[in-house]
Amino acid sequence: MRSVVPLSQNRGDNVDGLLRAFYRAQMPHPWPKPPETSSQTLPFRRFSRGQGATRSRWVLAASVAFLLAGSLLLPRRFTSQERPEPGIEALGTANRNILPDAPKMKTNEGKPVEKKQLPGLGFDEGELLPDLDDTGLFPPK
């Protein structure tokens, strides 16, 4: 039984015709084929179940061995060469100058000290100040 919805006379016919033509133009021609599936899935399965799994296990084992060897060898190497003197560690680097045989800080001994100009003044204080005549300012003693 065809139970098509009754159309309202004139306008309904127009809308029906317009919609049919519209959808006909929109639908793909020819209709697309079903998506490819077999080529995408089979190689993946074969790889994951066969050689690939064994290979990845070997890679994992080698990585773990490398990590273990690294964690055993590296600390030994550093501790034999760069062991700090006992007692200094606790003081920290800022207090090394107070120790008798610790290296001294750099000083400017023997070098002429450069005069640094004060910012904004342009001359050294005391050098260029004019001598003021103070006669008459104070009562005679």
Binding site: V4, V5, R20
Partner: peptide, 10 residues
């Protein structure tokens, strides 16, 4: 559904 697929009411 009605106009693209020409489906009946049912």
């Amino acid at each position: 559904l009605r106009y693209a697929l020409d489906y009946e009411t049912g």
